[in-house]
């Protein structure tokens, strides 16, 4: 390391330089005047400067993107004037600037060496471009998995509907035409009535199955009619206090629907409640779904697969599921589903 005329490089025993150069993380030190006094091998690789180029240069000019420089200098000045050490000794994420002008995400921690005279700040930092990319990819793929599963459910529902259900409908009409042609006293009449009743049962079972896979009324009419249908079927009386008529992305509507469906099932199974209240509203880029009951509360929130499955689905979409269930005061399930609209 060479010495700069008016801001000499930190003079360290050569063993210590070797130790710092072996580190995977960048180690960069600067004095109170903002000039670099130490720039280890990892920093040289990461930022694209040699130690000779870096040492003595203004740290902010060298490594901080122009848009962040003023804030950085303010922070240092405030600290030296006795202000609170806002960024010292904790992990922060920020943008770094390479020699070629490109910017990249870094995580770093800065410390002020106790008792060092003159003042010495040391930053330990690393390039987290790969991690950021991986995180973004993971997020996108989780959303895609939920969307693909929803699309598959819609497809199965549609296939059932266009296939078996359609055939059963035709069969019902044919039987009813035949029934219309035989007199009530006829022996065949009773057989046809039995066949029609049997068919009614089969149709109802198939409809239940299809509805559990994906409710057609949700695709057809959106959340409002779909939630009305859920409320009407609920064993506990349900007040739909507020539900938007607007349409949302299919996975957002499906998530909101499944939250209400599971919550109402839970109310009927676990809460001993008199009634449940459902509120769905759009708030700051999210669809917020709340289901309250006036039952026993005290839900531990573990054990079952219902809430866990919803939690996974919401996490995948970047949303949140929370439950409040004070003993004796009822339970509130709240889901926030990100939606761009």
């Amino acid at each position: 390391m060479t010495t700069h005329p008016d801001s000499p490089a930190l003079s360290l025993p050569p063993e210590l330089h070797a130790v710092l150069d072996a580190a995977l993380d960048c180690v960069v030190a600067m004095g109170a005047d903002g000039r670099v006094v130490l720039f280890n091998a990892a920093a040289q690789r990461t930022f694209g400067y040699t130690a000779e180029q870096a040492v003595g240069a203004d740290m902010a000019e060298l490594l901080v993107p122009p848009s962040l420089r003023a804030r950085h200098r303010d922070g240092v000045a405030r600290h030296l004037a006795g202000g609170a050490p806002a960024v010292l000794d904790r992990r922060i994420e920020i943008t770094g600037l390479r020699a070629d002008g490109s910017e990249f995400p870094v995580e770093l921690t800065v410390t002020r060496l106790r008792g060092a005279e003159p003042v010495l700040f040391v930053a330990y930092l690393r390039d987290i471009t790969d991690r950021k990319l991986a995180e973004a990819e993971l997020k996108a793929s989780r959303i895609r998995i939920v969307e693909a599963a929803d699309a598959a459910r819609r497809r199965i529902e549609r296939d059932l509907h266009d296939g078996a259900q359609q055939r059963l409908v035709m069969l019902a009409l044919q039987l009813r035409i035949a029934r219309g042609r035989v007199g009530d006293g006829d022996e065949s009449a009773a057989l046809l009535d039995e066949a029609l009743a049997e068919l009614d049962g089969a149709t109802a079972e198939l409809r239940e199955l299809a509805r559990g896979i994906h409710p057609a009324v949700l695709t057809e009419g959106g959340l409002h009619p779909a939630l009305r249908a859920l409320a009407a079927r609920s064993a506990v009386p349900v007040v739909l206090q507020e539900v938007p008529d607007a349409r949302f992305a299919a996975s957002v509507e499906a998530t909101a629907y499944f939250v209400v469906a599971e919550a109402l099932t839970n109310v009927a199974r676990h809460a001993c409640a008199e009634r449940a209240t459902v509120v769905v509203r759009e708030e700051a880029g999210a669809l917020v779904v709340e289901v309250r009951d006036d039952g026993c509360g005290g839900a531990a929130g573990a054990g079952g697969t219902g809430l866990r499955g919803l939690d996974d689905r919401l996490a995948a979409l970047g949303g949140r599921l929370s439950m409040q269930s004070p003993s004796g005061e009822g339970t509130t399930i709240r889901a926030e589903i990100p939606c761009a609209s």
């Binding site: 359609q166 009324v217 009407a232």
Partner: peptide, 10 residues
């Protein structure tokens, strides 16, 4: 072929 009650209102 669907016969949800809600389709009446819709």
């Amino acid at each position: 072929t669907h016969d949800e009650d809600e389709l009446h209102e819709l």
